[in-house]
Simulated assay, not measured.
Amino acid sequence: MNMILTLDYESDLPIYIQLRNKIIEGIASGRLKPGDPLPSVRALARDLGVNMHTVNKAYQLLKQEGFLSIHRQKGVVIHPDGFPPASERFLERLKEDLRPLVSESVCRGLSEEEFLSVCAKIFREIQ
């Protein structure tokens, strides 16, 4: 894989979700392009020092979400035909995921402008 994956084994976020998120970030940043191959479940599990079921769970989730294709001959590849657009369901999940972060930011005294500035900075870093 042409990106370095770093996982936080002390995080409350499950490893398979971290792996999913890192792969999507690689796609969003252009480090992973449509058609690029990914390591096999076994190889990535070995490289990361995690259980094969963990990698398989992340790959299956990414396949369901339209980011990966899994073929017997070709292996695991970034979906060659592009990615699903932002649906109403995605936007609802986005709001649900952001709500606790916005709430905590308000509690900690961040202004709307400061919060949006952090979001914009991350957006630009990934793009």
Rank of each mutant, 00 (worst) to 15 (best):
A58D: 03
V76S: 04
K95I: 15
G82I: 07
H71P: 00
E96G: 08
H79E: 10
A58W: 02
G30W: 02
K57Y: 06
Q60H: 15
R89I: 10
V55K: 05
R20D: 11
D97F: 15
H79R: 12
E25V: 10
V77S: 03
S69K: 15
I27Q: 12
E92S: 00
S69A: 14
L91H: 03
L94C: 10
S29W: 01
T54F: 13
E92A: 04
L44A: 11
N21C: 04
S40I: 02
K33H: 05
K74R: 11
M52F: 02
Q64C: 08
I23E: 06
D36W: 01
L48P: 04
P80V: 02
L48E: 06
F83A: 00
K95T: 07
Q18M: 08
R42H: 09
D12E: 03
M52C: 05
L91K: 04
I24L: 05
F67E: 02
N56E: 13
G26N: 01
G26K: 01
I15N: 08
V41P: 01
G82D: 04
R93V: 07
D81H: 13
A58T: 09
N56M: 15
D8V: 12
I24T: 03
G49S: 13
V50R: 00
E88V: 13
S11H: 12
